[in-house]
Amino acid sequence: MDLVALADFNLVARHGGFGKAARASGRPKATLSRRVTELEAALQLRLFERGTHSLKLTEEGRALHERTAVLLTELDETAAAIASGADKPRGRLRISAPLLLSQTAMGKIAAGFALKHPDVRLEITTEDRPVDMIEEGYDLVIRVNPDPDETLVGKPFLRDRLVVVASPDLAMPAIGTLVPGVVRGASNQQSWSMMTANGPAVIHVDPVLALSSLIMVRDAARAGVGAARLPISLVAHDLAAGTLMLWGNVDQSEIALWALYPSRRLLSARVSAFIDHLRQTFPNSTPDELAAFMGG
């Protein structure tokens, strides 16, 4: 594929017309039109619907633009970095992060990165859903225990685990007794397996309160509404202060936070710099580090 023609196509697509693209770039309108026509012929696809006074991307043209615009930008940045003899992070960095990490730590993480790398324009959005990185234009996603995906690569940078906690005013129930619970999401009756100081135990939970945020769940448990299953990092300070009591550790509940990026995309300097920043912020990848960071 002719990269010059592809770059010209993206230029026209970005500006919404040959005239606007020509004025913005200083290149002849006829040259841009010829390049796009050549690309359409090479691909055997119509990339634009050409009207008398309008130009509109076809479905194929839109897909090509979404998939190649970021790649061409990265190629330009890589070439510029090599030419200047340095690979200094610069440009826009879009990240998708899960809700709980965003609420508790992402502001401080982002601020630390911004102070280190003032030439990077960092944008972080909160998404618990699996985003399509290519379609939605993300450079990096942070996910909790992600499913295997051959299109993504990365490594975990933090680990956590679940515990069952409750207010000191709520006594741990006898075996077989129903206990009030605060849960995230579904409010149907549940059974929680855990390892207590006296060995394994199962408690039966009646969800008297269902909330959409784990911070809300923690606050409700702290108020004495019911028991809750929460990450140890989120309740470490409450356990130390005695505002929550530990009932037990949830079996096989390791939580791993991964930083992921597309395997077919060049690892840009800004993505590499952010991954390094995560590793420097949490060098041991432990829940204690996260709890200390949130409480600092």
Rank of each mutant, 00 (worst) to 15 (best):
P207V: 05
S191D: 09
T73Q: 13
I275H: 01
L71E: 10
H65K: 06
S167G: 05
I175D: 12
R229M: 08
A259T: 07
D219V: 12
E77Y: 05
V141L: 07
L267W: 06
G224R: 11
T104G: 00
D206M: 11
A83Q: 11
D288C: 06
G224A: 02
A174I: 04
V250S: 12
R121D: 10
A223V: 01
M133P: 04
V164W: 03
F157R: 03
R23L: 15
L266G: 01
D87P: 04
A111L: 13
G85N: 04
R218W: 00
A174Q: 10
T151Y: 05
F274W: 12
V70Q: 09
V202R: 13
K29C: 05
D149A: 12
A22N: 11
V131S: 13
H53M: 10
G242M: 07
G224W: 11
K29V: 01
E136I: 06
V153H: 00
E74P: 01
N188E: 11
F18W: 08
T78C: 08
T126F: 08
G107K: 02
F157K: 08
S54Y: 15
R265K: 11
L45K: 13
A166R: 08
D2V: 01
R23V: 14
T104V: 15
M245H: 07
L100K: 02
G51K: 12
D132I: 01
M106L: 14
L55A: 07
S102V: 13
D139K: 02
R184F: 09
T286Y: 00
E59D: 15
V163A: 02
A240T: 13
L178W: 12
V164C: 03
S187P: 03
M172L: 12
M194H: 04
L6I: 03
M294V: 13
L290V: 07
E135K: 15
G91E: 10
R94L: 06
L115K: 15
I109C: 07
A223Y: 07
P283C: 11
R159C: 03
V120I: 04
L214H: 06
L11G: 08
A24H: 14
T52N: 10
G226N: 03
A228K: 03
G16A: 10
V163S: 07
L57S: 02
S233F: 13
G181C: 10
F274S: 05
F157G: 03
A42N: 10
I215Y: 05
M195F: 09
R159W: 01
D219G: 08
